[in-house]
Amino acid sequence: MHVVCLGLSHKNAPVELREKFAIGDAHIGETAVQIAREPEIGEAVIVSTCNRVEYYVASENAAAALAVLTQRVGDSTAFQKLHGAESIRHLFRVVSGLESMVLGETEILGQVKKAYLTAQTAGATARHLNKLFQRAFNVAKEVRTKTSITRGAVSVGSAAVDLAEKIFGKLDHCNVMILGAGETAEMTARALQSRGAKAIFVSNRTYERAHSLAELLGGRAIHFDAWEREFDSLDIVIGSTGAPHAVVSRDKIEPLMQRRADRPLFCIDLAVPRDFEAGVNDLDGVYLYDIDALQSIADASMQVRRAELTRCEEMIERHVAEFSEWLATPRPTMPMKTQTEDGK
């Protein structure tokens, strides 16, 4: 039995091409069954995400299976054709995040799990692909737990969110204030919201701009000269104004901090020139990170991830060899789970 993979990804196809071949969630199971029922193919799983469209099939005849797949998807030079150990290795790399746009990201594992479950539920998989995907999930788990490939934040926004969680634990009780209305501040606020931040306030010199951003984020706009009045309820302040000087000085913050002795304040300064005076970080309970500090965290995390690549590949190689050996062992064929007429 051979495992064959036909696919395209962000590495070899632009978004215009990827969206042309993408398959909607509603059709994935049905399409996988149709492919699995082709005489040259026994089992099929389709992974379709914004970054990749990949067909994994199990067949006794790899060349014939590839021909059937190529004919089905239409001839495209962007499609990568893999078989044998290459296709197994590719799947293991994909689920481990080594083929992702952001090295080591973990979202792909959930997407592949979902794709596999859809195919399995539809009856498009049997012994070989079941075993392959279960092994792939184990490989991903091993790679993630035994190496640092997923460690650390690799963007300014996620670095800020990670730091916020290291200060407050869960963010569901945290109120966030955005000073200014910069794009990075908006992205950071969104990242904080996605981790459960309670409320977002937006304060900008132009109230209308603050209002529209607040509306976009489901928060509340505040007049720029009134933001200090909200200070007692704030946990995170994001600075992104275009002011030519510091908007938040140590002298301004110090008396305000005394009113909230045991509540920390996380200041994220994304503005250039900076919105926060550097001395703010010296205050008890205040943690200030500017854009350079956050960027260097992201860069350092990416470096750590890159340094782990070889270890990850060694782990994957071991599993590829083991699985290839299992696949090469002759065993009696098992009938694929077939669907009844009513679809059950």
Binding site: R151, G152, L163, E165, K166, I167, F168, G169, D262, P264, N281, Y287, Y289, A293, I297, A300
Partner: peptide, 25 residues
């Protein structure tokens, strides 16, 4: 320890493995 690492921006493996400061308090 965690507070000092946060203030000094020394975010190595000790920092990563220590719980959030709010949890520690």
């Amino acid at each position: 320890v965690q507070e000092r690492l946060l203030k000094r921006r020394q975010l190595g493996s000790v920092f990563q493995n220590l719980p959030p400061i709010a949890t520690l308090v």
